[in-house]
């Protein structure tokens, strides 16, 4: 599903955020991307959702070389991905329903299709009773569940999560992890960046470790 070959990313001449990364993630896999702050986890995710271009190397998603992708094709790729962030990135002026409906509106889905799908997804994350609330009226865990619903509503091929539990307490972290596990069980490939070792211990999966922009370990339990 994801093939990364000799990828480098340098923002400045003499310091590189990623150095010669080669990695393959098969369809339906669940992978933790771990490492200390500044290891290059977020940069690698950014390369995958095309927020950045690699300085060198190739990345293929579902057989498509995204490093050669023109700006008009990038939106089409992003519609097949779900992205979740540590700071949720919700639109606070819109309701929970409107936030989750947003990616479907972007795809030009019909209104009744949007309503049905959004309701189903909110039910899946346990927030169907709060669809008219605004994000700031919700707890951190609930806001992250809205963000996950927004990522899942398009039935993504790949779910990319950048420290999704970084701001949450351990109990809520477990609830969020159950949602990721559920998405993975339904066939979505999950790539989750975290430095929470406790979470990796409780939900053991393949772990790819980065340090200083280099891949230092790739281990499957």
């Amino acid at each position: 599903m994801i093939q990364i070959y000799n990828v480098c990313k340098a923002y400045q001449k003499e310091s590189s955020a990623l150095n010669d990364i080669t990695l393959k993630i098969p369809k339906g896999d669940f992978v933790y991307l771990t490492g200390p702050s500044g290891a290059g986890k977020s940069t690698l995710l950014k390369l995958l959702y095309c927020a950045e271009k690699p300085s060198r190397g190739q990345i293929l998603i579902d057989g498509l070389n995204i490093t050669r992708m023109g700006p008009l094709k990038i939106p089409r790729l992003r519609r097949r991905l779900g992205v979740v962030f540590q700071d949720f990135k919700l639109l606070n002026s819109r309701t929970v329903f409107e936030n989750v409906a947003f990616p479907l509106e972007v795809q030009g889905k019909k209104r009744y299709e949007v309503s049905k799908k959004v309701y189903q997804t909110l039910k899946m994350v346990g927030l169907e009773h709060k669809l008219q609330r605004h994000p700031l009226e919700l707890s951190g865990g609930e806001q992250q569940r809205v963000a996950i619903a927004r990522a899942l509503v398009v039935d993504p091929l790949i779910l990319l999560a950048d420290e999704p539990t970084g701001n949450l307490d351990p109990e809520v972290t477990m609830e969020i992890m159950e949602l990721f596990k559920g998405a993975n069980a339904r066939g979505t490939t999950v790539l989750l960046a975290t430095h929470d070792r406790e979470m990796i211990r409780r939900f053991p999966r393949r772990v790819v470790s980065l340090d200083g922009g280099r891949l230092i370990d790739d281990r499957t339990p």
Partner: peptide, 14 residues
């Protein structure tokens, strides 16, 4: 700008 950023992220065309 946040709204614009999110639109871009979820695959909005320019």
């Amino acid at each position: 700008r946040e709204e614009l950023e999110i639109m871009v992220l979820v695959g909005g065309t320019p």
